[in-house]
Structure formats: structure tokens, C-alpha cells
Simulated scan of single mutants.
Amino acid sequence: MIRTDAAVAEIRRRHKLTNLLHSALLLGGMALLLALCGWVVAGGDGVFWAFAAGALSLLFSPRVSPRLVLGMFGARRLFYPEAPRLHEVTEAIARRAGLPVMPDLYYIPSPVLNAFTVGSREQPAIAVADGLLRALTLRELAGVLAHEVSHIRNNDLWVMGLADTMAGLTRFMALFGLVLLLLNLPLLLMEREPFPWLLVLLLTLAPAAGAMLQLALSRTREFDADLDAAHLTGDPGGVASALDRIERLQGRFWERVLFAGHRGHGGGPSLLRTHPDTRERVRRLLELRTPPPVLPRLEDLPIHVPFAQVHRRPRYRVSGYWY
């Protein structure tokens, strides 16, 4: 069904408002949980120092160079002559998104169906794995690239960094509180004070609750990036087709084990996923079916990959699985 521009704009506005509200509530919930742990540990001073530590962590945290992260994946720069159509599509999407600079494209020699973003709005980079380039058509790749550009435009890396900081501080405050309770246990027993089981329960469950809120925030940001990708390309069907194809092809056991949760995969409970369920993402996208795409018509054919096909698997290192 083809909807009018006004109807499509209203659906998009409603989804954006819902996603924004979800993100605000989840971040607020994480802040409240952190404040509660700080209050349990040291009252009002604990709340102050918890938020002060979070602010200082965000302000002075080291800026990791995108090249350092990409180097861990064995990524190399993908230049225009090697993939001209991919560069043209990325440039058109970045221009429509209003990014100050076009993201650099990187190639990862891996059969995994994956793409990710590193850097910031001023220094963005998008990495695309060999497996994804060979599996998707140019139209579907445009949807994936638009999704990653949306993460850049929406400052999702900063938002998720903020969430990670709050989750980390919550874990630290909870552990610190439990250690203090353990050290004061002899005093409580000697004075026959009632044991604070409620506080122990709160401090024990707080890190898990913070992690759940962080995962829920990640899923909300993914929904928002899907919505913006459909708007940037004017082709929600292309974004939905990419998600559906990745879902069908990314079914090998080793991928499920090593990358559980990625792209909505893994088969575990939805609360433990970093990405939403693919069927729900596709359903929401198809609600946005629009008139002709914003970008010039893209081929439903695979693109030319200027490298030999790779079959390299990730190797385990102390910091995790890297290529």
C-alpha cells in the first residue's frame, strides 16, 4: 500500500517520538539506579560523588582513535576506485543526513555478515565485512550504510558511551557497598542490629538491572537507526530486505556462539539482545512504505568486490575474538 507523504511523515514522527521517549526513560532509569546505589553507600554524598565520577569519566575519557579499533579487526581503507558505487551511495546518504564530513569506508577481510561505525560526527568511519559485501545487493547495502550513517548523525556512540559509563559506575558502587557491608558485619552482629537484607538484595541486583537497561537502550537506538535509514534512502523495503537476508544467511552455529545478539541474532531471550528481533524491525519498516526512493534507483544485484573471497575465522585473544 502506498501512503501519502503526510501519512508517512506522521508515522515517522510517531515512531521517532516513541524512540526518543524510550531512550530518555531508559537513560533516566540508569541514572536513578546509579543514584540509588550511591545513596545506599554514602547517602547524599554518595549520590554526588557517583554523578561527579560519571561526569569526569565522560569529560576526560581517552578518545580512542577509529584507526586503532579498526586495526583490531584487520580493516583496511576502501578507496573510491575499488568500490565507486559504494562510495557514491555513502556520499549521497551522508549529504542527505547533513553530516559535516563523509564517513571513511573500511573493508574487513572476514566472512561475517557485519558492518559497524566508529568515531564521531567529525571523524566517522564505517567498516563493512567481506561477507556482507558479497551477500547483499547494492540496494540492500545502501540500507545498511544508511543505518550506520544514522548512528553517526544521532550521536549513538556517545549515547551508548554514556550508558556504559553509568552501568560501569553502578557495578562499582554496588560492589563497594557490598564490601562495606561485609566489613561491618562483625559490628552488626556484636550490636545485634538487624541485618540489612534489603540493601544487600538491592546492591546484588543493581548491576544486572543496569545491564538490562543498557541492552534495552541499545535496541531502542537500533529501531531509531532503522527508521532514519528508511528516511535517508526513501526505500524502507531495501532496509527491510537487507535485515531479512542477513537473518537468513547468518545462521551458522559458530556465528551464533561468537556473536550472539548481533543483528538481533542469537536465539536467546529478547531482554539479553543488543539488537531487536529482526521480524519486528522488518514489520516496522514495511509500515513506512513510501513513493519512489530518494536515491537514484539502485540495482538489485551484488556489487563487485575487488578482493579475493576470504574464509578467515576470528582468533581468541585476551580481549576477545579479533581478526
Rank of each mutant, 00 (worst) to 15 (best):
L27T: 03
I246V: 14
G71I: 01
N184G: 12
L157M: 13
E193Y: 15
H265K: 14
V282E: 04
E222I: 05
Q250Y: 11
L272P: 05
M166Q: 02
A9D: 08
A125E: 04
A125N: 07
F51H: 04
H87W: 11
D226C: 07
L217Y: 03
I303S: 12
L58P: 01
A94N: 10
L182Q: 13
A167W: 05
E247N: 15
G28T: 00
A229C: 13
R313H: 15
A50T: 05
H147P: 09
L285P: 04
L187S: 12
L145H: 05
D300Q: 15
P62L: 03
G267N: 09
R248D: 08
E88K: 15
L189R: 09
L34W: 00
L21H: 13
L181Q: 05
W39K: 03
A50G: 08
V239H: 08
L286C: 10
M212T: 10
G268P: 05
R313N: 13
L178G: 00
A92P: 06
L205F: 12
W254G: 00
Q123T: 08
S319K: 04
R14I: 08
L187W: 12
P207H: 01
R12V: 11
A230K: 06
L232R: 04
D235Q: 06
T165Q: 06
Y106I: 07
L249F: 05
R171H: 07
T278W: 09
E255G: 09
G131W: 01
P194M: 05
L36F: 06
L205E: 04
R221N: 01
L20A: 14
I303L: 15
T204A: 11
L162Q: 06
R252G: 10
L132A: 07
A240K: 14
H304C: 13
D5V: 03
D156R: 00
A260N: 09
L272T: 07
K16S: 06
V294H: 09
L21Y: 12
A163V: 01
I303V: 15
L105R: 08
V128F: 14
T233L: 04
A163H: 00
A92V: 07
E255M: 09
R221E: 00
S319A: 07
G161T: 02
R85G: 11
S120V: 03
T137R: 14
Q123K: 13
E193H: 14
V200M: 15
E10A: 12
L187N: 12
G119T: 07
G71T: 04
L25Y: 01
S241E: 10
H275G: 06
A50F: 06
E287K: 14
G237E: 08
F79L: 14
S120I: 00
W322T: 03
L175R: 13
G266D: 02
G29K: 04
G267D: 04
R85H: 13
R245E: 09
R85E: 11
W254F: 04
S241A: 13
L232E: 00
G38S: 02
G320T: 01
Q250G: 10
L295V: 11
A9C: 03
L288I: 10
S110V: 00
R139A: 15
A225V: 08
G177K: 07
L34P: 01
F51T: 01
W158M: 11
M30T: 01
G119S: 11
R12D: 01
F73H: 06
L132I: 06
L138V: 06
G266N: 05
M1L: 12
R171F: 02
R256F: 06
I126P: 04
F116P: 02
V89R: 09
S23A: 10
V47K: 02
V47S: 02
R273K: 15
